[in-house]
């Protein structure tokens, strides 16, 4: 589904990704771990097409297409979803409207009819229950005044409604207490699907206790330096990242 080859990317003239390779198939769950500054969030933002992240070399193929050639909204409509590390507050734009506009844009792209207000509301309410969210949030501004946990839950709710093919969760576990983490993890697990790939970018292996990955990659110095299964994450928990960094620099 996703094939990243020799990806180099810069932010503010600083090289962050330095030849990253990654292949992800449908139905798989990948965890990308790494120390701070290793390029995890850069990878997530490059995949979503954020301004200011300049790809200098390499390719990203998504369903056989050049992902990097697409505008952010086109990527989203083709099923690429980024759960933001820091979801943006947009006062004045209410959640329900954002969700509806987004969902209908994506449905239109798929050649599906727009949902009417009743259908939409029914869908949203169902998914909100899953995320233990109060209905009142629908008429609030996007992420406006949300706690850290609410913001992260809102990201997963959007994912549940937009039903992406490739979901990239950027540090979705950061800032969550254990109860919120469980809710978020349950939400993500319910979205595991043979047609959907999920990439979790995280610093800690804690999230992986609740969402079990098929693969674990370690990102260091802008490249994947080691790939393994779930046990690699536990090893990292024990030994930290330094041994890998040393290994990588050799």
């Amino acid at each position: 589904m996703l094939k990243v080859t020799n990806l180099h990317a810069r932010v503010d003239d600083k090289a962050i990704l330095t030849g990253l390779d990654l292949e992800i198939g449908a139905g798989e769950v990948h965890a990308i771990m790494g120390p701070n500054g290793s390029g995890k969030s850069t990878l997530a933002n490059v995949l979503a097409g954020r301004d200011g992240y300049e790809v200098t070399e390499g390719t990203v193929e998504y369903d056989g297409q050049d992902l990097l050639a697409l505008a952010p909204e086109e990527r989203a409509r083709r099923g690429v979803f980024l759960a933001f590390q820091y979801p943006v507050e947009i006062p004045g734009v209410n959640n329900a409207y954002l969700l509806k506009a987004a969902l209908n844009a994506i449905r239109a792209h798929r050649g599906e009819p727009e949902l009417d207000a009743f259908e939409f509301l029914a869908l949203v309410k169902e998914r909100m229950e899953l995320m233990h969210m109060d209905e009142s949030f629908l008429n609030r501004g996007v992420n406006e005044g949300f706690s850290g946990g609410e913001k992260k839950r809102n990201e997963i709710l959007q994912m549940a409604i937009l039903e992406p093919r490739l979901a990239v969760l950027d540090e979705t576990d950061s800032g969550l207490d254990i109860d919120a983490l469980k809710v978020v993890a349950a939400g993500v697990n319910s979205l595991r699907d043979p047609e959907r790939a999920i990439v979790m970018v995280t610093h800690y292996q804690r999230l992986l206790d609740y969402i079990e990955p098929d693969y674990v990659h370690v990102l260091s110095g802008g490249r994947i330096v080691k790939t393994g299964d779930r046990t690699l994450a536990l090893e990292l928990e024990d030994r930290g990242y330094d041994w890998l960094r040393e290994a990588a620099s050799v």
Binding site: G49, P72, E73, R75, V93, A102, H109
Partner: peptide, 13 residues
């Protein structure tokens, strides 16, 4: 940032 957030949800520019 807000603009990118909306774009990343599939909404046109």
């Amino acid at each position: 940032n807000a603009l990118f957030y909306l774009l990343s949800r599939g909404i046109s520019r």
